[in-house]
Design a protein around this nucleic acid. Sequence first.
RNA 1: CGGGGCGUGGCUCAGCUUGGUAGAGCGUUCGGUUCGGGACCGAAAGGUCGCAAGUUCAAAUCUUGUCGCCCCGACCA
Length: 571
Amino acid sequence: MRYSQYYIPTLREIPADAELASHKLMLRAGMIRKSSAGIYSFLPLAQRVLKKIIRIVEEEMDRAGGMQVLLPIVQPAEIWKQSGRWDVYGEEMFRLQDRHQRDFCLGPTHEEMITTLIKNEVRSYRELPLRIYQIQNKYRDEIRPRFGVMRAREFIMKDLYSFDRDEEGLNRSYQAMYEAYERIFTRCGLAFRAVEADSGAIGGDVSHEFMVLAPSGEAVILYCEACAYAANDEKASAALPPVTMEELLPLEKVATPGQATVPEVTAFLGVNPDRLIKTLFYQTDEEFIAVLVRGDDELNEIKLGNLINKPYRLASPEELAAKLELPVGYVGPVGLKDKGVKVLADLRVKTMKNAVCGANLEDYHLRHVNLERDFTVDTYADLRLAKAGDPCPHCGHPLAETRGVEVGHIFKLGTKYSKALGATFRDEDGEEKPFIMGCYGIGITRIIAAAIEQNNDQDGIKWPLPIAPFQVTILALGVEQQAVAEEIYQELTAAGVEVLYDDRDERPGVKFKDADLIGIPLRLTVGPKSMAQGEVEVKIRRSGEELRWPRPEVTSRVLAFLKEENQRHSN
RNA sequence: CGGGGCGUGGCUCAGCUUGGUAGAGCGUUCGGUUCGGGACCGAAAGGUCGCAAGUUCAAAUCUUGUCGCCCCGACCA
C-alpha cells in the first residue's frame, strides 16, 4: 500500500477529550473518529486491525467446532419479555418501535435470539452438540461510555452459544472454549490471565473472564502467586482466619458520644477495626435485612445480591429511624431479631470474639459482644470484598492485586434461557429436555484498545505483529531513494508481505514520527547515508533495535523476521 | 441519577470578568527556500462563536432554557 494513496489522518496534537493512552493513540494514529458518545467510525487502519483480530477469532472458533452465523441486530421485544430480561436489562437497552408501534431493541447480546432460533430448528439429541457463533455489532446504552472504544455503546463482539444435551457436554464445550480463548489472546500477542468471575446479568453459575493485564484496566483482579487461583474482585474470596481461643467477657454498654464511623469508634475505644462488627441495612420489597461484616472488611454487594436473589437496596437512615427506630452509626445485631429483621453475616463474623458493635441506641456501643450468647445469625455466607494480602482460598498464600481489561467472558448458562424460552429437544430416553447452554463472548473492538494499552510508548503504538495493520513500513527519505524503495516495496509485496510504503512528499521527520505513531512492527528506511553503502536501515518498533541489512538480503531477512515474530505468538 | 467542567475555522485553544471591527498556533491551498526525527518565509481560503429565547441602540461576552461532550461520584453507618 502506498501511503500517498491511503488515508491515515494522524494528529499532531493530543485530542482534548481523551484520557487513556489507547484512546489518545487511536485518535492520533487516525484509526477512529467519534460520532457521538461511545459511538465511533473505524478508519482504514483500524479496519485492517479489526479484520486481523476477527480472522484469528474465526480460525480458533472454527477449530473448536464453532459454526458462524449472522443474527438480527434488531430484535423483537417478545423474546426478551419471554426470558424476563426486557425489564431486567433496563436503561441499558437501546429500544425502538416500528411504524406499528411494535417494540424492538438493538441487541445488547444474543441469547434470546439464538435460543429462539435453535428452539424452532433442533428437535433431537442426535443434532447435538451445537456451537454457533456470530461476530456482529452489539448495542448497550452504557451509563457512562468512556475511554474510546474500550467502553463504547456500539461495539463488535463475538458470541458463541453452545447447546448440549447434558452437563458433561456443557463441560466439554466450556473447556473447548476456554482453550480456544487462551489461543486467541496468545495469538493476538496479549499478556492476559483467566480469572473466576461472577456471572452477573447473563445468568448461570460457572464463569471465567479473560483479562488483558493493564494498570488502566477497569477491572480489579486478585490472584495468587503461589497457585493458579485468580478471580475478579466481584468474585474473589479468601481463606478464613483461624478461630482464636479467647475467654468470653461479659457484655458491656459504653458511651461513645459522636463516634459513628468505624475509624471513630475504634480510635475512641482503642480497639482494632477487626474487632468491630459493621452492620449494614438493606431493604427488599418485603423486609429489612441486616448484613454483618467485620469492621476492616467491605461488603461485596454482588455476593449479597446473589444471596438475596431479589431486588434490594440500601435502606436510608430516615427509613431506619422511622421504621425500626435505629440510629445510623450506632447500630448492631444485638436485639435485631425482636424487630423482625433478618440477619445475614459474612463468614468471618463467625470467628469473632468479644466484638464491638452499635448498641442500637444513639451515642452508645456494646463491647464484648459474642455470637450465639448475645445475638444470632440467620445465614452465613461469603459476603466480603476480598483484598490484596488476604490468604488465597486454595493455598493460603497472600493474594496479589492487579488490574485488567475484560476482553472475554465465558459462562455456563445451564437451562436458564432454554427453559424460559421453551427450547427443548427429545433425548435418547424419549424425554423432552431443555438444552444445556453456554455462552462465550469476546469484545473484538475492545481487544484493539487493550492491545494498545499494553503496547505503547511516548512515540505511539507498538503493534504485536499478528494484529498490526501492516507488517512492514518503508520510508523513502528523499527523491533519490524512491527508486530503491519502490523496488523493495515490489519485492516484499510479491513475497506476500503487507507493506505500507511511505512515498509521500514529506520531510523525513514527519515520516519518522508517523511511522512510530502508527506503530508498524518493522521499519525499513532508505536514506542517502545507508544507500551509498548498499544498505537499508532497519528499526524494530517493539524493541527499538536498529540494524543495517545489505540491500540484496532485505526480502529474505524481512521474511525471516516475520516468521520468527509469528512463532513467538503462536502456540 | 447527583456534582463539576467545557461547547469559538478541520485540530488545540485565547477572547467573555468590564457588551461595541472574531483572534493565535497547528492543519489546508498557492509561491519560494529547505530536506535524516512533526522546517522556514510570503500570500490565501476557512467561523450561523452548539441551538433557542430574552435583556440591550448593540451579545461570542449578560440572563433563562435546551442540546451535546468530558470528568468525578452513586450511599459500606
